[in-house]
Computed example of a mutant assay.
Amino acid sequence: MKRKEFLQQVSLGLGSIVLSGGLLSCSKGKENGPDENPIEGNPIKTDGTLRIGVITDVHKDYFPYADEYLEKFITAATAANVDFIIQIGDFTYPHFRNDGFLSIWNSFDGLKYHVLGNHDMDTSSKADFLNYVDQRDLGAHYSFDANGFHIVVLDTNFIKQGNSYTPYNARNYASHPNNEIGFVSPEQLEWLKNDLAKADKPTVLFSHQHLNGSAGNSQEIQTIIREENKKGKKVIASFSGHNHQNWLVEVDKVSHIQINSSSYFYVGPNFPDVTGRFPENVENNYSVMKKSAPYDDSLFAIVDFKGPERIIQIEGRESNFIAPSPYDLGYYTYRDQMSPSSNINNRTIKF
């Protein structure tokens, strides 16, 4: 299978930034240049710099080369000397058969964080998954400071029926319509208000479902962000996965960044099965691939947050669809940032 190296930008290369700031402690931009629109008000500032590795939707139980693709990420993150790595959900089922995959993740010699994705609870509870990945103490939603920035992780995996919020558990969400799933619990919303009010650093959010439309009560979350930012811009960006896409949307001067799946784009049940990309025994064991457009190389990002320059710099990766692509098959006849992509774009975003 074809493998490509990281895309290079003139101003950014792996290992090219010397990090400053303290230790970590728990508790639209333009693709080719910064957005020139001035920041209104008195934004929260930092002199810190932070470098992280981000990956999402590896889908160990759906994708035959998940181990190889995760290992490439760990190798690149180590070479880039990141401050921590984070995966944004749909990682693996908490089952002993996946212990080897988890050991690849744990081979990173540094801080590691998990965001819950809906498929992580396909065979188990949230507690089961958190125990499996050794994140029971942090839990499903949490925050911490890192080198002059504040990081917030949200759990967008609740079912809402009336005033009742039920955690995802053993794929219980699958029997509910879209307008009842992907919610943040009321208790978590209250926690978010309080956490943002106390934060004194530029803040970055991470969630599986994106907060500019996909999460069931994303409008409530945007209201919380908007009201806090009126006091002086504090929340600067929100990173998500789930959609297996590659886009950037700005809402109220907050950059919402969709990180593409490491592994594939899910075409869906409305199109014919595509076979022949993998050996027959592989296709039989990974039936989702017949409804998907897999990538021929692992996708992930190295992200720099530069306080003095007030920019977020994303170094993405480029791959190809394993033929035939959704475009070869005529499933898509146009291309924009919401169309299927086998890349994660390089971006420089002003905050």
Results as ranks from 00 to 15, higher is better:
residue 174 A to F: 05
residue 142 Y to T: 04
residue 125 S to L: 08
residue 162 G to D: 04
residue 115 V to R: 05
residue 148 G to S: 11
residue 127 A to D: 14
residue 171 R to H: 06
residue 121 M to C: 11
residue 143 S to N: 05
residue 126 K to Y: 14
residue 173 Y to K: 11
residue 171 R to K: 10
residue 152 V to W: 03
residue 150 H to V: 13
residue 164 S to N: 12
residue 149 F to R: 01
residue 151 I to R: 00
residue 162 G to Y: 11
residue 122 D to C: 06
residue 146 A to S: 15
residue 163 N to I: 05
residue 116 L to E: 14
residue 130 L to V: 02
residue 159 I to E: 08
residue 176 H to L: 02
residue 121 M to G: 02
residue 135 Q to I: 02
residue 124 S to Q: 04
residue 160 K to L: 03
residue 137 D to M: 06
residue 163 N to R: 14
residue 170 A to I: 11
residue 129 F to K: 00
residue 121 M to Q: 07
residue 166 T to D: 09
residue 149 F to C: 06
residue 149 F to K: 01
residue 124 S to F: 05
residue 120 D to F: 00
residue 169 N to Y: 14
residue 130 L to F: 09
residue 161 Q to R: 14
residue 162 G to T: 10
residue 176 H to W: 10
residue 168 Y to L: 08
residue 157 N to V: 00
residue 136 R to E: 07
residue 176 H to T: 01
residue 149 F to P: 00
residue 159 I to G: 06
residue 138 L to A: 02
residue 130 L to Y: 03
residue 143 S to I: 02
residue 157 N to L: 01
residue 178 N to W: 13
residue 144 F to T: 13
residue 177 P to L: 03
residue 118 N to P: 10
residue 130 L to T: 01
residue 148 G to P: 02
residue 132 Y to V: 00
residue 119 H to L: 11
residue 167 P to K: 06
residue 169 N to I: 12
residue 146 A to K: 08
residue 146 A to N: 05
residue 149 F to L: 08
residue 165 Y to G: 07
residue 168 Y to V: 09
residue 133 V to A: 04
residue 125 S to A: 12
residue 126 K to N: 13
residue 164 S to K: 13
residue 132 Y to T: 00
residue 123 T to N: 14
residue 161 Q to H: 12
residue 133 V to W: 02
residue 178 N to V: 09
residue 168 Y to M: 08
residue 124 S to M: 04
residue 137 D to S: 07
residue 146 A to P: 02
residue 145 D to A: 15
residue 138 L to P: 00
residue 159 I to F: 11
residue 177 P to R: 12
residue 165 Y to Q: 06
residue 175 S to F: 04
residue 135 Q to E: 15
residue 155 D to H: 07
residue 139 G to M: 03
residue 165 Y to H: 11
residue 159 I to V: 14
residue 114 H to I: 05
residue 137 D to F: 03
residue 176 H to V: 01
residue 163 N to V: 05
residue 150 H to P: 02
residue 146 A to F: 06
residue 155 D to T: 05
residue 132 Y to K: 00
residue 156 T to I: 08
residue 128 D to E: 14
residue 174 A to M: 07
residue 159 I to M: 10
residue 175 S to K: 15
residue 148 G to F: 13
residue 124 S to I: 06
residue 127 A to L: 14
residue 133 V to T: 09
residue 178 N to Y: 14
residue 116 L to N: 11
residue 153 V to P: 00
residue 146 A to Y: 04
residue 136 R to I: 03
residue 140 A to M: 10
residue 132 Y to R: 00
residue 155 D to E: 11
residue 171 R to E: 02
residue 117 G to N: 09
residue 141 H to W: 04
residue 124 S to N: 07
residue 122 D to G: 05
residue 147 N to K: 15
residue 127 A to G: 05
residue 123 T to C: 15
residue 127 A to F: 09
residue 139 G to E: 10
residue 116 L to M: 15
